[in-house]
């Protein structure tokens, strides 16, 4: 798998994942992903649009990183999953505790709204 990062406006960071998120693929990005979520209270959009396959081992990585980030006062949302990946996310009920947006733009808007609500 590939993992690339990009700093977006308003302090939101995009992590774009690409490839098959099975055990082999997840292993390739796990350390870097964890490094990005375990150290600071970031607002992170994970761009899933180029993830073609999501297995339970990939869900494990998404959930544990979202938890780590949440514990540090940050927040993680998912954006643009392909139909099969979205089906897997919904089936496992992940979308009830990690918000899933149609694209990066709406994910950023959602993140900022949530951050503003929290700081009020």
């Amino acid at each position: 798998m590939e993992l690339t990062t990009e700093q977006l406006e308003d302090g939101v960071e995009k992590i774009a994942l690409a490839g098959r998120m099975d055990s082999a693929g997840t292993q390739e990005i796990d350390l870097r992903f964890t490094g990005l979520t375990a150290t600071r209270p970031a607002l992170i959009v994970v761009d899933m649009s180029r993830v073609s396959f999501l297995a339970s081992i990939g869900i494990r990585t998404l959930v544990s990183n979202a938890k780590a980030l949440g514990r540090r006062g940050g927040r993680m949302v998912l954006a643009g999953p392909q139909p099969l990946v979205e089906e897997v996310l919904k089936l496992a009920g992940i979308d009830s505790f990690i918000p899933v947006y149609a694209d990066v733009g709406s994910a950023c808007a959602g993140l900022k709204t949530a951050a503003a609500e929290r700081s009020e």
Binding site: A66, A92, G93, F97
Partner: peptide, 16 residues
């Protein structure tokens, strides 16, 4: 789970 705090990290495979 309704919240991230309550969510378990693994155990999704058999459900799939």
């Amino acid at each position: 789970a309704a919240t991230l705090e309550d969510a378990q990290v693994g155990g999704w495979g058999v459900q799939m």
